[in-house]
Every structure is written in C-alpha cells, then in structure tokens.
C-alpha cells in the first residue's frame, strides 16, 4: 500500500494533539500545537478537493460570460466576454489555476458591476444568475474540518 500525503498529514496532526501538545509546559506553545493540529486537519481535507474546485469555478465563470455576452450593450465588452468564455485552464498546477481564476474573477466583477447599471429584465436575470453562481462556487470552498 502506498503512503498517501493525506495520511502523513493526519499522522503529524495526531502527534501534535496526542504527544506533543500535552507535554509542552508553556501554555502559549501548547495552544499553538493544538491549533497546528486543527490546521493540518483542514489542509489535509482541502488538498483533495482543491484542483477540482478551482477547475469547476473557472468553468462556471466562463459559462456566465458566454451567457451574458449577447445581452451586453457595449460591443467591445461583449467581445471580451466571448473571448474569455473560450479560454482554457493553462494547466492543473494550483498556481496556474489561481492565475486563471484571478483573471476570470476580475472580469466577473466588471461584468457584475456593468449589469447592475443596465436597465431591463435581461440585465436583472444575469445579475441574479451571477449571485446564484457565486453561491454555488462558494459552497465547496468552506473547510470540511
């Protein structure tokens, strides 16, 4: 059986909780050891989900741009949205995905502010669909521990 990174992190967390923290005389340091154990538990669980969550967020943002572009009154901006909807993640490393998420989120903020200023039912529909998408994207980001 292969030793998984998650298991290693779990082992370190258990050592901090059960063997290291109880043997520290300094209260501040013992508390830090307990916090470190909690942090390891959170990061252990987050690690498994991280790439999938980021890929899904980027896919969802591109879907919003594709949906919104036809309703945007500024043709240059509409073109930028269409172009962004056709992009792909440059790789699956966290840093690559984060850079892409940053670019897509900046455009989303711009789009959201734009439709808030536009009149009409279609603008309201897009505005509300962005908020619902943000709720969906946020849900799996919450720590599991």
């Amino acid at each position: 059986m292969k030793l998984r990174t998650e298991t290693v992190l779990e082992g370190i967390a258990e050592a901090l909780r059960d063997r290291i923290a109880p043997n520290l005389d300094d209260g501040f340091a013992a508390n830090d050891a307990r916090i470190a154990q909690t942090l390891l538990a959170i990061t252990r669980l987050a690690r498994d989900d991280e790439v999938a969550n980021k890929v899904e967020e980027n896919r969802r943002l591109r879907e919003i741009f594709l949906d919104a572009a036809p309703a945007i009154d500024d043709p240059t901006f509409a073109e930028r949205l269409e172009a962004a909807s056709r992009t792909r993640d440059p790789g699956l490393r966290i840093a690559e995905l984060d850079a892409e998420t940053g670019r897509l989120r900046n455009l989303l903020v711009e789009l959201h502010a734009h439709v808030e200023q536009q009149e009409g039912e279609e603008a309201r529909r897009i505005d509300q669909s962005i908020w619902r998408a943000l709720r969906d994207i946020e849900a799996p980001r919450a720590p599991r521990a």
Binding site: R105, N106, V109, H112, A113, E116
Partner: peptide, 17 residues
Amino acid sequence: EDIVEPIVRGAIRWLRA
C-alpha cells in the same frame, strides 16, 4: 487582496448604492 473575491465586491457595490 491577491485574487479578488466577487462576493465581497458585490456587497460593497450594494452598500454604496
């Protein structure tokens, strides 16, 4: 902020409006 949080920015716009 390193990567913008659209949820927070949306709330700020609502508060200003």
